[in-house]
Each structure stands twice: as C-alpha cells, then as structure tokens.
Design a protein around this nucleic acid. Sequence first.
RNA 1: GGGCGCUUAGCUCAGCUGGUUAGAGCACUGCCCUUACAAGGCAGGGGUCGGCGGUUCGAAUCCGUCAGCGCCCACCA
Length: 839
Amino acid sequence: MSKQVPEKPTLDGLEEKWGALWEAEGTFRFDRSKTRDEIYSVDTPPPTVSGSLHGGHVFSYTQTDLIVRFQRMRGKEAFYPMGWDDNGLPTERRVQNFYGVRCDPSLPYDSGFVPPEKPGKQTVSISRANFVELCHLRTIEDEKAYEKLWRWLGLSVDWSLTYETIGAKARRASQRSFIRLLDKGLAYQAEAPTLWDIDFQTAVAQAELEDREVAGAFHRVRFHAAEGDVVIETTRPELIPACVALVAHPEDARFAELFGKTVVTPLFRSRVPVLAHDLADPEKGSGIAMICTFGDINDVTWWRELQLPVRGILEPNGRLKPIQWGGDGWDSEDPSTAQVNYDKLAGLTVKKAQAAIQDLLSESGDLIDEPRPITHSVKFFEKGERPLEILTSRQWFIKTLDFKDALLERGRQIDWHPQYMRVRYEDWINGLNGDWCISRQRFFGVPLPVWYPLDEAGIPIYTLPIVPDEDSLPVDPATDTPPGYDESARGQSRGFIGDPDVMDTWATSAMTPQIAGGWEEDPDLFERVFPMDLRPQAHDIIRTWLFVTVFRAHLEHDSLPFKNAAIAGWVLDPDRKKLSKSKGNAETPIGLLEEFGSDAVRYWAASGRPGTDTAFDTGQMRVGRRLSIKVLNASRFVLSHATQEGAVTNLVDQSMLAKLRGVVEDATSAFEEYDYTKALERIETFFWTFCDDYLELTKSRAYGSAGDEGAASAAKALETALSALMRLLAPFLPYVTEEVWSWWQEGSVHKSSWPAPNECGEGGDAQVFDLAAEVLGQIRKTKSAAKVSLKEECKQVSIKAPAAALEALKVAEPDLKEAGKVAAFDYQEEPNFSVEVTL
RNA sequence: GGGCGCUUAGCUCAGCUGGUUAGAGCACUGCCCUUACAAGGCAGGGGUCGGCGGUUCGAAUCCGUCAGCGCCCACCA
C-alpha cells in the first residue's frame, strides 16, 4: 500500500479535520446539472431558532442524514438543504427576554436604536420595525451556532443551500401563494368567532391547540322562569352575562315543556330562549346548558345553527369589558340591578370575575350549594399560559373543509415510514371542524400582503382588499405603498391602510419545498427537485407541518409536495418521559459530541427506528465509540496485509466474502425501506465476526504461514471486505470511515459507490466460515473454562458432524490449526454437530 | 369515547410471512497485557417471551379477550 497508515490511529480531531476538508472540497455540494430522476431531494425540517438544539434534534437529524448518505452513495445526487425557522412567536419571545424589550406597534421607527447589552430593570418599548430588526439580529447569531453544531455532527447538508422562514425567499413564496389563493377564492376574510389567546392577543388555529388538565368547579346556578326555576351546571359562571340561550336535548322529557319559552338569567335579568339541539347531552350537568358567546366550541356550533345573537363580554386581553345594560343588545328586565352587578365584574380577568360572580350568585341566592371542585381538561394555545377564549374578530381564512376528501387521498399517495403514521394524518383531517385561520396579530412573521381602501370617514373597506403585483413581492403593507396610491394617502380619508397582521408561521412552513426548491424564482432548479423525495419529521407535527404542506401543494400544484414521509420518534428520558429542556441531558449536545465523538452519537441515533421513541442512552454512545475505535484498529491491521491485486483462491476467504455478500444485500434492502437501524445491525454484527473470527482465523496465513498463495488470497479478501465494510458503515460513522478510507483510497468514501453484492465474488460457501468460527469459539471456550491463555496449545480437537459439514471444516483446518494452536484434528461423521477440545 | 403503537434477560432492544434447546448490546461475573486493539479482548451466568382462552402436529410469532404503558383524535355543561 502506497499510502500511510498511522502507527497509533485515534478518533481525536477527526471532526475538525474532515469537516474542513469536506467543506473545502465541496463534497456535499449539490450538482444541479443532474436530472430529476438522478436526484434525491430532501425537504429538511427547518429547526426553530430560539435558543439551543438538544438531544432530540441530534437524534432525528442524524436519522435523515443516514438516509441521504445512503442515497448519495447509491448514485443519487442529493439535494439536501437546511432551513432555519426563525419566524414566529418563539423568536419574538426570545428577543423580548434576550434584550428586555417589547413591541409597541404604535411607536415610530427609531433608526438610531441600539439594543441594550442585557435586559434592563425596565422593559423597553420599541417600534415594530425596530423589534423585527432585533429578531433578525438575534436569529443570525443563533443560526451560526446551529450550523456549527450540525457540521460537527456530520450532517451532509449542502451549506450553500440555506434559507430562513423569515427570509425574502420565504416571504415571497408564502405571499405569492396567498395572493393566488385569494385570486382563486380560496382565501377569504370573515368576522367570526375565533380561538384567541389573551396573553399573546392573537388568533390561533385548531392545529395549535392542546388540552391541559386544570382545576375548576361546577357551579349550580338558578335561572328563573314562570314555570319554575331551571338549574344549570357550569364551570364558567362568569359568562352568565354573555348567555344568549339555554339548550337541552330535543328528546329530553324534563325540559319538553320549556322549549320555545324563555327564562331569565340570574343577576343580569336577561330574557333568553330555551332551545332544543341534539348536541346537548342529557347526561351532562343538569341536562340543560347555557349557551354563551363564547365559552367553548360547542357554543359556537349552537350559536351558528340556532342563529343566536352575539353577546361578547371579553376584551382581547381577557378582561370583562364595560357594558351599558339596557342598551342595544344588552336587554334586561331590570337594567339597574344588572348594571350594579356587572360593574363589580367589569375590568376583571376571567379568573377574578369567576370568584366575584360566585359571591354575587351566593348573595342573590342563585347559587345552589357550594361549587364542586373538579379537574377537567381545557383548551390552551400550545405556547400559551392561560386558557383560550373564543372572541369574535376579523381574520383571514383558507378554505380547508372543502378539501378533506382530496387531502385524505393525497395521504394515501404518500409512502409513510412507518406506515401506521398515516392514521394520525387521517384522524386529523377527519376531525377538522373549521377552515384554517391564518392571520395572527403578531409582529415577527410574514405580513399578509394586502391593503384596504379607506372610505370618506376613514373606515377600511375590507371587502375590497388591494393586492400587490407578484413582481413586487415581498411586501410589508405597514411600510410599502399599494399600487395606485401615494404613501401620503396612508390612513387618510379615501386613502388606504395596510393589513396589520402576519401569517400563521405554518402558512410559511407549509411552503418549505417551494422555498428550498426555488419555486417561480429558479424554475430550472424547481423542476429538478420538486416534488421532493423525502420529508423527514417528527410525529407530533403531522397535524401541522405535514398536513399544511400537503394541503398547499395540492392547491398550488395539484401534486404531492413529497413522495416519502419518514416520521421520527422522540427522544425519551431513561425514565420514559419525553426529553424536556428542564432535564440536564436535553442540553448542550455539543458536550455529547465532544465526549463521545460525533460518530458515536450518530451510532446511538441510528439505533432509533423510524417512528419509534427512543431512550436517551449514553451507554449506546459508548458502544458507538468502541465500534469506532475498533474500526480504526482493525483497519490498521487489515491494511498491513491487504492488496488490491490478486485473486481470492482460498475457500475460507471465499466463504467470508459470501457471507459479506448476504450482508450487503440485507443492508441495501433495509435502507431502501428506510430501516437504517436494521441495516446497521446487520453490518455491525458482521463487522464483529469479521474481527473476532475471520481476522483471527487468517492472521497467520496472512503473515505467510501457508505460503504465498494462501497469503495472497487472504490479502485480497481482506482488502475486498474492508473496502465494502467502510462503505457500509460510512453513513453511520462518516468520520472514522473517511479517515480509514484515506489510508489507502483516493477521494471521499462518501462519494464512493455503495457496495454491490457482486464485489464479494460469485461463489463461496458461507457455511465454511460459520462452522470454522463455531469451532474456534469452542476452542476459546475450553481454554477460557480451563483458565489458560488463548495461546495455550490444544492436543486435539474432535469434531462430529454430518458429512457436508466435515467437508467444509476440513477446508478450514489449516487456518483453525494456526488460530487455535491445535496439534491434531479428528473427524467423525454423525448427524449431530459437536466439538470436543482436549488441552 | 374512538384509534394507533408498545408489553421478550436487571436495563435498552432484535426476533420477517408460526418450525429444532428464545437472540444482541449494556450491566454483572470469570479469565487473558494473544505481535490491530487493556478507555481492549475472550468466555460465562441470567428469561414461565404481560395474563387468560383459542387455532395448529407445533405460537414470542396467528385469532379473541383482559390488564398496564405511551401517543393521536374527539369530548370536556
């Protein structure tokens, strides 16, 4: 061998050494001259840039990298970009905390603003433009740190292909798509009940809900009627002033005579109808419920289907708003009493109002018994801190319900890995109960690209939105002037105003294949990579990211956005809880990479099968490290004997290669099915047998104990096996395999071709090697049991076996004799295989 | 309430379309500084395959049922 094999190979420094070389050589650079069928394109999940990556990220991104590296070695040109999800609430929150600022959209832009080094005692209010600037500033820093970690981990991403979800490309793509939906009548605005977070003060979508168990209480409350009192049970007595009707099941005899009549609410003395609707459950509460605008999603349904008026009492900040009882829409049998009672609630938060109204109800005698404490689950915005409310507001929607069937069909066209994950997608679609609300009353996001004309009185005419030309995208209606207007007309009578809202961050993430693929901006590229081959992602965002991506591609391109969906599991604490940031092991993956080495951490990640949650396990990383060290040492030994020339004439050598051939076949088909774990298992098992048994068996022969021909055969077999093994292991252990590859090969192992079965020769009988390994094992066992050194001689090895096995073993006898220090062999033909070793 | 997944050695997991005494790694124990490897190697002990019932010549593997765990969806007056 002409190249140099180090005397003492080490794992230290491999990440820096090869990371720098790959970058310099452009090893993972995408070659866009390749055609669609030669390309494997990946819709990489853009990680949320809001702090730091943790073990879970390392886990799932490694898994994607395994697949990409396999595809690349199989001859595909990998289109493997990286995005940064910097748009949205997490960044806003991070910037607020990092600098101690808050966004006040009413403030003017301050071009001389310098952010504080550290958060001050007092929060600094800044304009929306200044705030967005800070968001950009912060995310650039975070993205650098992320990229450094990803490179260290060895992701074979083309780092010239990056995008940010707040970047110009992303803004253009999502605004362009929005305008087209508007044009097709698929985007619309409506003044409607909307899920509302009172802390962030924004609308949110069904996909962003989560249930949380919280303490509450059933209040039994008396409503008054001529026929006698009606008792309802409610967990939200503070909404009694918002009550517009009572409702019971049409077949519930207890309330039959009340249907069509009216009752009077306690405290506020409003007359409301008693109605029938089959959504009312006789089993729940007292069997009759109050309908408030709005307490929950059921209220919205009733309100809509029973055509009830709106009586909203909540401000966007979650406090009860001032109301003039007896005024329009707030009729009362006794307005002055209603006013006295309500004034004690106005201005309070929901929680405080609940306590206050409880006292009022007690005083008036309308509360029956003490409230009964319960624990019940309540809807929250997933990033929120207080329960969601439902408020009426003007929002933009995308028609979704009309496409349920089409989207279910799209789901069936995707290859899911694992397959059962499709069910989650279907569950979600089947449970959709409204169109997708995409407007958010936030700041750091993609602006909704519309303005509204103002009438003479300066009131926006929402029905006539002004839309930008596609050529002018991206636009920010807050600062850009709409076509046909002069900026001086902003906010003026007969002028215009910009829509103040931004889009749901998922409305932008929905476009990642288009953003990365250069949709409408680089048609040549787009044609080569879209639809993508692979969407890798975790199972918790099937209902969000996966769903919206499929949805938008369906509307925009009438196609799938990707062919395969590889769904990763979560990383769990050893105690089976989802890995949380509060636990130490969720932090600083860079520390893990330094302690165990990137290859070792990747080895652990590879042990997590697609879709399967996996325990965080440093033990696995230690095993990975040991494997890496073994790769170095075994390769050093192999290369001290190996040659690329010559022929494998020895039957033991042929047998080992026959076995390897099977491993290549298994690993290849496992990878084709996205089961990298199975592939690794097969490869690793063979590698250890290769080291423990084959190298031991042939060591002496390789040194020349059986003459030149035997040595030459071993030398060629060793080289053949090592070459295949390094390539098989390359996706998992990119650093150590590249290091070893460089000892005797040209170019990068990662650009070499995935082993083909026929590299291992045509014939060979795997049984020879297996039996020889078995006998060698017996010899070791006997010596171990006798507590003697493995170098100790054996007087005799007696083998009983069927004829064919004996035949095979005789072939291996010379190697066994040397490896086991055996003086003599004895063979007897018998149906059962057994070995007896005499020391 | 509906659904999906899981339940195999102390721990983490393999066991495909049912077929000889159930496997691996870690941990544990013992032996070995064997000229690729002592931050290593070799070997060993350890399991009523969640419970019950069924199909079958034969079941960890198929069917039914029960229990537990995790998750998804729905409901949450």
